[in-house]
Design a protein around this nucleic acid. Structure first.
Lengths: 214, 214
DNA sequence: TAGATTGTTAATCGATTAACAATC
DNA sequence: TAGATTGTTAATCGATTAACAATC
């Protein structure tokens, strides 16, 4: 029986950050790194780093630290980034365009293989080497490219309908940039990226600080 | 003495989501809503909704629920959204362009009043009605528009330098789209928006599920 | 060996959930 | 009044931090 340890989502998030930091160290030719140095570099505590890694195994050497290249590979593997992922994107507005051309996705092995929109004025336009396609093409593109992850970057009103299409075509994970909560079956993973929310945490904090200065 | 209750960041995040849901209810003419209905609408538990609101006061009526318009206004006020916020944005790439034209900011009272880039080929270009300006203009624009929040949407290499300029010009909060950890004084609030991280939570989960199906 | 740093356990801290008295 | 729903307390759950034995 596999020991079924639940990994906190915060740990996964930090793992992603660690892995990117390790890539940077590796590019700079660094061979060995300690939990303290990683912690310093990404802004968490050393104990946190060790605890996070401990969910997945023992990757370091006591008294020495971690081999940068090895730990980089391990963390990438844990995140599922030892392979390529094809994505589809629905919504060819400015945000969709930015996502299509976002270098950060490429760097991590994500490739957007289809862009879709229901706006006739957008269909046929080119983004990178991709033609914006009508929604009817979604099933074909998903099948042909073995796509499991979809990105929704449409206005709130259209988001649920797009989610429904994705679910009907076996998409298993959705990154949702729209500001409404999607209704999908339990087996479909959804993560919302609400660009305003983070700004509003900032304004909340600025307001609270102002209140304290009264 | 003010009771100094620490509000969890998760609560602030949900408050932002509640407020947007309440705006939607209000637009639809809904007068009263219960914690259970809000919970249903945004995907949390009713107790969570009540607990979150309890940090800030008593907004409901027992046996009845909450007045939609009132609660909407309260939540917006708590978030600091009962006023207008001017922002500057550094980085006029595709992501910067998308952020400049992002309707979601506008809807919540955020206005980008200056866009900056150090790339000479971008300076002078127009985004909406804004000219992309050189970095030297940052101090002037911040002062003239009473800007307290900056957005960084530049490649990793340039991000720290931009943060330094922002800090030197009294920016108090930074929304960071670059993938490196910024070094800023404690009094400056930073929130990172890493677009890849959320995708990697998805691939992590897909991988784990696959492992369990073995 | 002495010094350094991991991996892990126990203690602490904080957030969520459940339950229910208050009250409309 | 009876039914509904809040506000709040207590119980639970989970994540972070501290400490240290193991060990290179």
């Amino acid at each position: 029986m596999v020991k079924t340890l639940r990994v906190p989502e915060a740990t996964v998030t930090r793992l992603s950050v660690y892995s990117r930091y390790l890539e940077r160290l590796d590019r700079n030719g660094v061979i060995t790194v300690s939990s303290g140095e990683i912690a310093e570099g990404v802004g968490v505590s050393p104990a946190q780093v060790r605890k996070d890694l401990a969910y997945f195994g023992e990757f370091g050497t006591r008294g020495v630290g971690y081999n940068v290249k090895d730990l980089m590979r391990y963390t990438l593997k844990i995140l599922g980034l030892d392979r390529h992922w094809n994505l589809i994107l629905v919504g060819a507005g400015n945000l969709g365009y930015a996502l299509c051309t976002y270098k950060g996705f490429d760097d991590r092995g994500f490739t957007i293989v289809g862009v879709f929109d229901d706006d006739l004025t957008k269909i046929g336009k080119k983004i990178n080497e991709l033609d914006v396609m009508p929604l009817e093409e979604i099933p074909r593109v998903i099948k042909e490219n073995n796509v499991r992850i979809g990105i929704i970057a449409v206005p709130p009103g259209g988001a649920q309908g797009i989610a429904d299409i994705m679910v009907a075509n076996d998409i298993q994970a959705i990154m949702n940039f729209s500001t409404i909560a999607l209704n999908v079956p339990d087996y479909v993973e959804v993560r919302n990226v609400d660009l305003s929310v983070k700004l509003e945490i900032l304004t909340f904090n600025l307001g609270f600080r102002a209140a304290q200065n009264l």
